[in-house]
Each structure stands twice: as structure tokens, then as C-alpha cells.
Amino acid sequence: MASKDDLDHRDEDEVCPVCKSSRYLNPNMRFLINPECYHKMCESCVDRIFSSGPSNCPVAGCRKTLRKNKFRAQTFEDIGVEREVDIRRRVMHILNRREEEFDSKRAYDDFLEQREEMIANLVSRIDVAKTEAQLQKYASENMQSIRTNQALEEQEASSFQARMTQEQEEARLRRQLAREQLENERREIQASREDMLNRLAAGSSADAAAIAREGHKVLLKKSSARRSEEDRIRQKQAALRSEMKRGAGAGELAGPSDSGLIKGLRKIKTPEPEKPYDPFMGYVPEKRDYYTLQSSYPSTYLDRIRNDTRMAAGGYDLKEYYSRTMLEAFAGLGCFIGEEVSRRDAGAEVKPAATAGAAMAAGGE
């Protein structure tokens, strides 16, 4: 591993390949790189060459078109590590499938291995055109799932940051509470000792043992109350953490589950949209979901008709009468359902349809 002196000496030897300026002569020189070719050049050359618009890289042999807004400071000392980190970040930004999207752990492991192979190909410059084409095709076909997983990752990162902040705050409060309790305990012990000494000085020698026992009981009672308070605080913090864990549920997955690049994805069934309710059930006489049509109903009048052969000879069927009567009896149920639901959602008082009709009739008289 290089020492600090070696790194400083290496920084001093840095020379801009365009203007040949050296950091040795200009310690405030700042070098920038562009992810298109990763050629390093000084900030003044970047401003001079690329301020008017995109231009070719001035390094000999490089024909990449560079833009000024893509230049940035180098993070890692080794430019190869810098390039590999950028490639890995870009590929993982596209191939961001999660383990719960796969049928099995083996399928998810195969996906991870496939992603690492694609990263290795881009880093080693092996089948670059083919790999880039696969990434672009996958990104265009699975844009919705990519965005959904990115949103889940951001949500998990924010939840983790919130948990870390809360845990740090809880630790700070625990330390502060412990300090306050120790200080209060010290003061109580000091006050108890002073009170005991005063009572012993004012009393007789026969009362010394009783006074000592009473002071010991007071100290035990206070320490027991302190432990109970600490247990209550721990239980409250544990309940708060468990509630946060239950609340931090994973979001729903979206997008197509089929992909030509990734195998073993779980099939996602898209629910069918809810159809509007039809109270007449397509005008089919015996198909109703709000009542069940029986084969016969007890009625002295209808029993005579059922046993009369003259009625049956004309083709009359009591089932048609039953169906029409039940439909007429229940036909008014769906008249005011939409209005009542909208009022209920708005928080207004919902009145039955019959009550509303009676009120309108009374107002008209």
C-alpha cells in the first residue's frame, strides 16, 4: 500500500495531457474526468474547449464526443476502479430485480450471476456492443418495473435513515436519562445520609438501629421505583420499534413479469378491472344476485292457479309470474345507491331512499 508521501509525490507529478501544466507548478490545479473516455484533464482546459458545446476529446487517439456537464472530479485514485464503479452502478440501476420477484432462490442467484457476467464483460471490454444492446432492450421493455424497484429502494433507504436517526436519538435520550438518574440517586443518597445523621444526632442510642433500618428501606423503595421506570421505558421503545417494522411493508410490484433477458421471474397476474354493477344481470330472468327465485311460494290464490289445468293448457307458467313479481319488488333497490355512497364517502348523513321520497312528497303537499 502506498504511503502518504508517495501519494503526495504522485499528485505533484500529474500533468494535463492538453496544456501540459503540472500540479507541481500550480498546486491549486483541479483535474476532471469524463465517463465517456475517462481521460483526465485540467479544469481550465475543460472550460476552454467544451464551454461552447460538445467537442471531441483532445487526447490523441480518442474520438469520443464529450460534453462539459459530464465532467466531474475523480473519486478513486485508480482510474480503472473509477470506471468499474460507474459501470456497476449503471448496470445495477437497470437490472434492479428483487428476490421476491423470482420463483426460487436459485433463480435469483442465477440472475445475480448473469448481472455480474454483464458487468465483467463491460469492464473487460468483451462483447460490449452485444451487452449494451441487451441492456437497452431490457430497459425499454421493463421501464415500469425498473422505476417501481427504484422507488422501493429509495423508500427502504429513507426508512433505514429514519430508523438510524431514531435509534441515535433514543440512545442520546437513554444516556441523558441515565445521567439524570445517577445524579438524582446521588442527591437522594446524600440527602438520606444527612437526614439519618441528623436524626441520630437528635435521638438516643436505642433508636439508632431503627433509624438505620428505616433509611435502608427508603433507599430500597426508591431503587425499585427507578428499575420499574426503566423497564417501562424499555417496553415502550420495543413496542415502538416493532410498530415501525410492521409499518415498513414492501410496495407492490408492477410491470411485466416476462423478460427475454432474465429467467425465472414470478408470474404477476394483473387483476381485471371491476365491471359496473348491472341490477338486471343482463336481463336474464332467473339470474339475480340480490334474491333467489324459488320454485313455488305459499299462497292460497296461487295454489288454485297451479292446480288448474286450464291455466297450464294456455302456456301460462307461474315461474314467470314469480320472476316478474320479485324483480318488481327489488327493482328500486339500486336507484339511490350511487348517491348514498357518494354522501357516505363525503361524510354526510345518509337517509334511506324511502325516507327521502317521503320527505319530498311531504314538501310538495
Rank of each mutant, 00 (worst) to 15 (best):
S3V: 09
K4W: 04
D5A: 13
E12H: 12
D13M: 11
V18L: 04
S21F: 03
S21T: 12
R23L: 03
R30K: 13
I33S: 00
E36K: 15
Y38F: 10
E43R: 12
I49S: 00
S51L: 04
S52W: 01
S55I: 04
V59H: 06
R63W: 04
K64P: 01
K68M: 00
K70Q: 01
R72C: 03
Q74A: 10
E77L: 12
G80F: 05
E84R: 15
V85A: 11
I87A: 03
I87H: 01
H93P: 01
I94P: 00
N96V: 04
R97C: 04
R98F: 00
E101G: 09
K105P: 01
R106A: 07
A107L: 03
A107D: 12
E117V: 13
M118I: 09
N121E: 04
V123D: 00
D127V: 10
A129Q: 12
E132W: 02
Q136F: 05
S140F: 07
N142H: 13
Q144G: 05
I146Q: 01
Q155W: 03
S158N: 12
R163L: 05
T165N: 11
Q166F: 08
E169A: 14
L173S: 13
R175M: 04
Q176I: 10
R179W: 07
R179C: 06
Q181I: 06
L182E: 11
N184R: 15
E185T: 15
I189F: 04
S192H: 09
R193D: 04
D195Q: 12
M196V: 14
R199F: 02
L200D: 00
A201F: 05
S204G: 15
A206Y: 05
A209N: 11
A210F: 02
I211R: 01
I211E: 01
R213E: 06
V218S: 10
V218F: 06
S223E: 08
E230K: 13
R232D: 05
Q235T: 12
K236W: 05
Q237A: 11
Q237D: 04
S242G: 10
M244W: 03
A250D: 07
G251R: 02
E252R: 15
L253K: 09
A254W: 00
P256L: 08
P256D: 09
P256M: 08
D258Q: 15
L261T: 04
I262T: 05
I262G: 01
I262F: 02
T270L: 13
E272R: 15
P276Q: 09
P279W: 02
F280H: 14
M281K: 15
G282C: 04
G282D: 02
E286C: 12
K287S: 09
R288V: 08
Y297S: 10
Y297L: 08
T300E: 07
A313Q: 13
G314T: 14
G315A: 05
Y316M: 09
D317V: 14
K319V: 07
K319F: 05
E320N: 14
E320F: 10
Y321G: 08
Y322R: 13
S323G: 06
M326I: 04
L327Y: 09
E328G: 14
G332H: 15
L333Y: 11
E340I: 10
S342Y: 05
G347C: 03
A348P: 01
V350P: 00
V350L: 03
G357P: 00
A358K: 15
A362I: 07
G363Q: 13
G364N: 14
